[in-house]
Design a protein around this nucleic acid. Sequence first.
DNA 1: TCGTCGATAGTCT
DNA 2: GACTATCGACGAG
Length: 198
Amino acid sequence: MKKLDREFYNRDSVLVARELLGKVLVHEWEGQRIAAKIVEAEAYMGVEDKAAHSYGGKRTPRVEVMYGDPGFAYMFLIYGMYWCFNVVTREKGIPQAVLIRAAEPLEGIQLMAQKRFEKEYEQLSKSQHKGLINGPGKLCMALSLDRSVNGIDLCGDQVYFEEGTDENFNIIATKRVGIDYAEEAKDYLWRFCIEGSE
DNA sequence: TCGTCGATAGTCT
DNA sequence: GACTATCGACGAG
């Protein structure tokens, strides 16, 4: 399938977050393809968004990638143990990003099961199966995304997005998660999900 | 199936 | 020294 190009990412995060739903995230890892269909994403609108790491124009070594060109990966560690995968949006100098929160497995499912539970896919319990990649930290574990891919070009050959095959779904917009400190910004409907996905 | 709670380390003040 | 864009274990029902 066709890779998403630079221009796709060079728009506001809310647009990119919506349109990333149904697209396929691919990680070519040690010669194997690990792929998943995005079903949940959140927009972080940068300077004016109290929930964003770049709120108020904050600029530190960690968030530097967000100030660069669109279509690059911004990884950060949360709660001391989990990685979160983000896509940088908008042109250089405007620090916006989209957090990828959940997906459905497509390829490399055995690898995902190994990385998450050190088990064969067939041996997973029902709850393990459902919880394989239904959260940002879990998704990063399963797709082998960590600090080593921070700042990587998503228009390259290692980590990238492809067009999806099934564009036939409804999108639900809800409040973002885990940002109680963000005052009025915590109520913005900037979290997007595919209706009916588990 | 729901809730509450502790783990854990990088980052910034 | 405080805080965090989360997860899973565990207990009550």
